[in-house]
C-alpha cells in the first residue's frame, strides 16, 4: 500500500492575509459626494431664490389660481382615465376577438393613438374637428365640439383608452389558461368567468401599469394649456407671462412633483394591500 495520500509534511499555519483596505476616497465615493453636494447646493439655491423673490401680493394673487388649475388638472385626469377605462374594455376585447375585421379595427385604433403625439391628437381634435361646424350642427353635437374642455376630455379619454386597452389585454393574456378551463368545467357562463375569475386576476397584474398610466396622464395633461384651458400648466404660463418671474415655473414644478410622488406612494400602498394574499 502506498501512503502517497498521507501528507508528508505539514504546512505551518500562516497569518491571515492583510485586509484589502478599501481606499477611503474611491472614485465612486468622490463622485457621489460631489453630486450630493450639487443637489444640496441646488436645493439651497432654490429655497433662497424662492425666499428672496417672495412677494406676498403675488402669492395672494396667484396661489388661488394655481390651486384652481390643480383642481382642473386633477378633474381632467380623473375623468379621462375613468372614461378611458370603460372604453378600453371593448377595444381590448376587439383586439383579442376571433373576427378579423374587429381585430384589425381595434388594432388600428390602438396603433393610431399610441403612434402619434398627444399634442398632435389634441390639435387634430380641437382645431381640425372644430372646422366642421355645420356638420356638427346638423348632428346637434356642436355644443360638444365647441367647448375646449369637452374636446380635451374626449381626446384624452380616447388616447388613454388605447393605452389602457393594451395594458388590459396584456394582463388578461397573462391569466393562465387553466383558469378558463377550470371555470368552464364548473359550468360557469362566460360573463361570470370573465368578471369573477379572469378580471380580478388580470387587474392585479395590471395594477402597476395602470398606476404608471395615471402618472403619465397627470404629466401629459399639461399640454391642454395650449388649447386655452387653464389647468395647472395654463395658470403657470399665464402667471409667467404676467410677472416674467421664473419662480412661477418652479412652483409649478414643486406642485407637479408632489402630486406625482404622492400618487406613486398611494399606488404602492394600494398595490401592497391588494396583493397581500400573494405574499409569503
Amino acid at each position: 500500500m502506498s501512503d502517497a495520500y498521507v501528507a508528508q509534511e505539514m504546512i505551518a499555519a500562516r497569518p491571515r492575509p492583510n485586509e484589502v483596505r478599501k481606499a477611503d476616497w474611491t472614485f465612486a465615493r468622490l463622485l457621489g459626494s460631489l453630486s450630493i453636494l450639487c443637489w444640496i447646493a441646488a436645493g439651497i439655491g432654490l429655497v433662497v431664490f424662492l425666499i428672496t423673490s417672495y412677494d406676498q401680493s403675488q402669492i395672494d394673487k396667484y396661489a388661488p389660481r394655481y390651486f384652481d388649475g390643480f383642481l382642473t388638472t386633477m378633474k381632467l385626469v380623473a375623468l379621462s382615465v375613468s372614461i378611458g377605462a370603460v372604453l378600453s374594455l371593448p377595444i381590448a376585447f376587439g383586439r383579442m376577438s376571433s373576427n378579423k375585421i374587429v381585430r384589425n379595427l381595434s388594432f388600428g385604433y390602438i396603433y393610431f393613438f399610441r403612434g402619434t403625439p398627444l399634442l398632435a391628437q389634441l390639435f387634430l381634435f380641437y382645431y381640425g374637428f372644430g372646422s366642421f361646424r355645420h356638420f356638427w350642427q346638423d348632428l346637434n353635437l356642436w355644443w360638444f365640439f365647441r367647448d375646449a374642455w369637452s374636446i380635451a376630455l374626449l381626446s384624452f379619454s380616447l388616447n388613454t383608452a388605447a393605452y389602457q386597452a393594451e395594458i388590459l389585454r396584456g394582463a388578461i393574456m397573462n391569466v393562465p389558461k387553466g383558469q378558463h378551463e377550470g371555470a368552464a368545467s364548473l359550468g360557469l357562463p362566460p360573463m361570470v368567468t370573465f368578471f369573477k375569475i379572469i378580471l380580478p386576476q388580470a387587474l392585479i397584474v395590471a395594477l402597476r401599469p395602470y398606476g404608471n398610466e395615471i402618472i403619465l396622464m397627470i404629466k401629459g395633461s399639461a399640454v391642454v394649456s395650449i388649447v386655452t384651458i387653464f389647468d395647472l400648466m395654463g395658470h403657470t404660463r399665464r402667471a409667467f407671462s404676467q410677472t416674467l418671474d421664473y419662480q412661477t415655473y418652479l412652483y409649478a414644478a414643486i406642485f407637479y412633483l408632489l402630486v406625482v410622488e404622492i400618487m406613486r406612494r398611494l399606488w404602492d400602498l394600494l398595490e401592497h394591500r391588494l396583493t397581500r394574499h400573494l405574499r409569503r
Binding site: 382645431y127 372644430g130 372646422s131 361646424r133 365647441r146 395650449i226 386655452t228 395654463g234
Partner: peptide
C-alpha cells in the same frame, strides 16, 4: 390684460398667436 381687468363677466381664452383665435372665432367657438 385689458380683457382680464376691464371686461367684466367674460370668460377669457388665451391663445399663443392671433392666428389661433381667428380660427376659433371663425369656427364659432
Amino acid at each position: 390684460e385689458y380683457a382680464e381687468k376691464k371686461l367684466e363677466g367674460i370668460e377669457l381664452k388665451l391663445y399663443p398667436t392671433p392666428d389661433e383665435f381667428k380660427l376659433d372665432i371663425e369656427a364659432g367657438r
